[in-house]
């Protein structure tokens, strides 16, 4: 396991097992329900880290769709493009590239063997 995957959770966070590697789609996203929150999980086997988690809610289109966006990089930043109006969100920081004041939530996420863990 890589160093990145070994992130320590903040004390009041708890790692929850969400699904398995099988549920993920390489090069694309799926959505998981964590408590009442919709978390978009992106699996990029060739990257470090391999797994990214941001809120599924598109703050511009006001719908829960980010897990269904196309992944890519813009100026070296890994991003997902919203399927609604195509704004890009940074997978690591949640920042919206087109609208600086906007952000989506990011979650700590890691793979434990084949289990996907999200910190909530």
């Amino acid at each position: 396991m890589s160093g990145d995957d070994n992130m320590k959770a903040a004390p009041d966070y708890e790692w929850q097992s969400i699904c398995t590697r099988e549920d993920l789609v390489p090069g694309s996203g799926v959505c998981a329900l964590v408590g009442t929150e919709q978390v978009a999980l992106f699996y990029l086997p060739g990257e470090q880290p391999q797994l990214y988690a941001v809120s599924n809610r598109d703050p511009i289109g006001h719908a829960n769709v980010l897990s269904r966006g196309v992944l890519g990089d813009i100026d070296g930043r890994l991003v997902v493009a919203s399927p609604l109006y195509k704004q890009h969100f940074d997978l690591l920081t949640g920042d919206c590239l087109e609208q600086q004041d906007l952000q989506v939530g990011v979650y700590d996420v890691r793979l434990d063997g084949d289990t996907v863990l999200v910190a909530v």
């Binding site: 890519g72 990089d73 813009i74």
Partner: peptide, 8 residues
Amino acid sequence: GRGCDICK
């Protein structure tokens, strides 16, 4: 790079 929502 890795591609994007235009070229993919």
